[in-house]
Design a protein around this nucleic acid. Structure first.
Lengths: 189, 189
DNA sequence: TCGCGCTGTTCGTCAAACCGAACGAGCGTC
DNA sequence: GACGCTCGTTCGGTTTGACGAACAGCGCGA
């Protein structure tokens, strides 16, 4: 009855893995999570060991206790991370006169991408500590000028420029002009 | 993350509603869906009536039989058009002087988000036919001025403005000023 | 009117999910 | 070494979800 794409790890196996992964990422012990979620630790133990077919309420309780969206537990673990760099926009989509669309980055399946709008003033470079492994950041500069990218080799951006780089190393965003704003896309596991 | 808002409709109520909604949208009878999903129709009946706490495998079978992502059953309704003006938005993250980051949209799991940079000239409104159901578009205007959104009720954007709207209805992007550029995020499930 | 096919419901049985307690393993402290 | 703590696993008992069958309601054709 597992209608997952054939040959793939069964649904419960995925849940088991995701659950353990998220729990460890949250730094919680099995007992602790069980207590917070209000489920018996025996239950949690069995689920994580891949035994049985948990009820949605149980899973929901665990998901919220973990602070992750429900479906992160049922979605298969994520494939390899891929970083693209696109300076001038590779593939053009629509080419109606006066209208051009450049594909900057195609989203790898099962990644989460969150959008942020960022405004910054010069003289306050923002150095970010590394995010969890697999994190990728995308930046499109809307206005002003900025230095963005990995701390070791940042890139100067002008309006419209796009850069993407791994987020699991120290990185920087430094406005070079007043009124600098950018769109951030945080892509993480 | 989505801990459900405290005045919650209750998880199973949501599932019940979503299930019935999706089933009717697919034009399937309860019996038919039950047969396709390989679950007893009695089970399905009870779930749709909000009784009990279905197992994940059961739900999964139903979701795939319906051809909808799992999360559509557990996550509440559809996003409508939403506008965040430049400077608005939950200034969530860092608040180092001169640096603000606003979370525009958190990515639903298992969704793909592709990035496009778009430049357009006035006088060439671009009307898009509906994309597949579940598609959502996000637009951040980088420069110029534009009218964007559902064809019936587009929104005027100025630099930094953000709008998101369902992509499965006709929608439009109409530059109102020369040198108009925007970042497009196409999100499809 | 009767019968057929379909709808979605309810009922009794069985398997299993959930729970609580008890268990052995690993650490740090007195 | 013995204690105290927390770790995760395993073991009966109770609750409950899933199943199949029997059920009533509705539309349609003979």
């Amino acid at each position: 009855m597992d209608s997952r794409p054939a040959g793939e790890p069964g649904l419960i196996a995925v849940i088991a893995a995701s659950l353990r992964r998220e729990r460890e990422r949250a730094g919680l012990s099995l007992s602790e999570l069980a207590k917070r979620a209000g489920v018996a630790k025996s239950t949690l133990s069995q689920i994580e060991s891949g035994a049985g077919n948990p009820g949605v309420e149980t899973l929901w309780a665990l998901a919220t206790a973990l602070g992750v969206p429900f479906s992160r537990l049922v979605d298969p673990p994520r494939p390899a991370t891929r970083v693209l760099r696109a300076g001038e926009g590779p593939a053009a989509h629509s080419e109606v006169a006066g209208y051009t669309a450049a594909l900057l980055a195609s989203c790898p399946p099962n990644a989460r991408r969150d959008l942020y709008r960022v405004t910054a003033r010069p003289g306050e470079p923002r150095l970010s500590a590394p995010h969890p492994p697999g994190t990728v950041e995308h930046v499109v500069l809307a206005s002003g000028r900025a230095l963005a990218g990995p701390a070791e080799e940042p890139v100067e951006l002008r309006p419209g420029d796009y850069v993407t780089y791994p987020g699991d190393v120290p990185h920087i965003f430094d406005a070079l002009a007043p009124d600098t704003s950018a769109l951030f896309v945080m892509e993480h596991v």
